[in-house]
Design a binder for these strands. Structure first.
Lengths: 109, 109
DNA sequence: ATATATTATCGTAATATTGCAATGAATAAA
DNA sequence: TTTATTCATTGCAATATTACGATAATATAT
């Protein structure tokens, strides 16, 4: 059905999957890496930087913003985007808690 | 077109997005967490544990296996799955390098 | 007011994902 | 050999995602 049955999972499992899903496209990874690299806020040169069409970039930005990982401020006719550092740190804690489990004995089967 | 243009991104960006995509469904998160929890290898009780139909679980397992994050050994009529610890550590390094960037100054825009 | 620039939204086509019933393959037990 | 058990695979329907052209919305400049 193309629809994840979220009701049968814990809130944490659903949260992890939502964060992971937004990282599940290289364009969004590239947008985030560029925002980190230039440190200060950014506007629409993401289109030039990445090479996808403007509506496509805009759509990816929307998803990142919707999850709270970036912020966008209107500056004149353009929009300045930047990392939402507070939420990024929270997300990082959730994801690292998931990734950083005790490793079981090797060759368990 | 529903098709990511992977050729315009770096290998690392594509790798990150592939790992993230597999975590982008709560069932796969739940499978992995259960495999970590019971520490020793696991077979088909994942269906009971999670509550999705057997073909659905089997499909998710296939994706996790395809990415190398789990291993599966045939034991009689059942199959024992476990974390592929070596690859998990490698994946973790890639993901944490992505997540753990220097945080820019707050309120940059 | 008009023109320009920038970004968001809408609509649409192509493809991917999710979930499961039905079925198949393999092994173990009777 | 027959039957039961377990898991994989196939096929399909429903939904989601990706990408972009066209267009709307907003603000600035002339």
């Amino acid at each position: 059905m193309g629809l994840a049955k979220t009701e049968m999972f814990t809130d944490e499992q659903n949260e992890i999957s939502l964060f992971a899903k937004v990282f599940g496209h290289p364009a969004r990874v590239a947008i985030l890496e560029h925002l980190f690299k230039i440190d200060r806020c950014v506007c629409g040169d993401l289109v030039n930087e990445i090479g996808l069409a403007q509506p496509t970039i805009s759509q990816h930005l929307k998803e990142l913003k919707h999850l709270g990982l970036i912020k966008g401020n209107v500056v004149g006719t353009s929009v300045c985007y930047c990392i939402n550092t507070e939420n990024w740190v929270k997300m990082k804690e959730v994801m690292i808690r998931f990734l950083d489990k005790d490793i079981p004995k090797p060759d368990c089967c």
